[in-house]
Amino acid sequence: MKKMIYALFFGDSITYGEYDGVFGGWVDILKRYALQKFHEGSNEVIVYNLGIGGETTEGLIKRMPHELDARNSAEGNVVFIAYGANDLAIKNGSQMVAPDQFRENILTAIQYAKQFTNDVYLISILPFSKNVDGVQVASGKLRTNSEVLVYNKILQDIALENSFMYIDFYTAFLEDKEILLSQDGVHPNEKGYGMMAEIAIPIIEKYL
């Protein structure tokens, strides 16, 4: 008997797939992959792309209980949490979400997720291009790669403490980031999103 499993991807514009006019981003690639596998006889994994551009963990914890309530499969749920690129940004002289608050918010999000599933994945923040590292961009945000390391360490530690899997896109991007990031230096390009999907497909396959 085939099962219907919901995979919920919470995140910002990188989850949403911004700047990818070809594939629609890594989560949408996973959505198509899961659908194809279902047609071939696998379990049905329904992928929900719940990415919102510009969102921080402050927005996540406000909407997460409602999103989870609205999408709860009796046969199984998987939750992916991908935040930090906006939280760590400095805007108008202060960080949008300071590291300690970021940690608290992620822990709150995990508590919400645990009411629906034990399968929670925390996703690393990507490195930024050298062109935007420490540079205030048009949106007024300033981001640094040194802060990425601080926030990723928080995510890694939480994953370890809770026996969750940490998906390390950061390391995968680091060496070739100038090739894998779009011109804005923050979002992946089609090649970058494609690589993210390749890394995540084996995780999705566990539920198929």
Rank of each mutant, 00 (worst) to 15 (best):
M4Y: 12
M4L: 14
I5H: 14
A7Y: 15
F9W: 15
T15W: 04
T15I: 08
Y19T: 03
D20R: 01
V22T: 01
F23S: 09
L30N: 09
K31M: 10
L35G: 15
L35D: 15
K37L: 12
K37P: 08
F38G: 11
G41I: 08
G41W: 10
N43E: 12
V45K: 14
V47Q: 14
V47G: 15
Y48G: 13
Y48I: 13
N49I: 09
L50V: 12
G53V: 06
E55H: 06
E58G: 05
L60N: 00
L60R: 02
I61C: 02
R63D: 05
E67C: 02
L68T: 07
A70Q: 07
A74C: 03
G76Q: 13
V78P: 04
V79W: 06
I81H: 05
N86T: 14
K91T: 13
Q95M: 15
P99D: 08
R103W: 06
R103G: 09
E104C: 12
N105K: 03
L107D: 14
A109T: 10
I110C: 13
I110N: 07
Q115G: 09
F116Y: 15
F116V: 15
F116E: 08
T117Y: 12
D119W: 09
V120S: 10
Y121K: 07
I125K: 11
L126V: 03
P127Q: 01
F128Q: 02
F128D: 03
K130Y: 04
K130Q: 09
N131I: 08
N131D: 12
N131Y: 09
D133M: 10
D133Q: 09
G134S: 05
G134K: 05
V135P: 11
Q136Y: 07
A138E: 10
L142Y: 04
N145K: 09
S146F: 10
L149A: 11
Y151P: 12
N152M: 07
I154S: 10
I154Q: 08
I154A: 06
I154N: 08
L155G: 13
D157H: 01
I158T: 10
A159T: 05
L160Q: 08
E161T: 03
N162E: 15
N162P: 04
S163L: 11
Y166P: 00
Y166D: 01
I167S: 04
I167K: 02
D168L: 01
D168I: 03
F169M: 04
F169S: 01
E175Y: 05
E175Q: 07
D176Y: 05
I179L: 11
L181R: 06
S182Y: 03
Q183N: 07
H187D: 01
P188R: 00
E190A: 10
Y193V: 00
G194S: 02
M196C: 02
A197N: 00
A197H: 00
I203V: 02
E205Y: 00
L208Q: 01
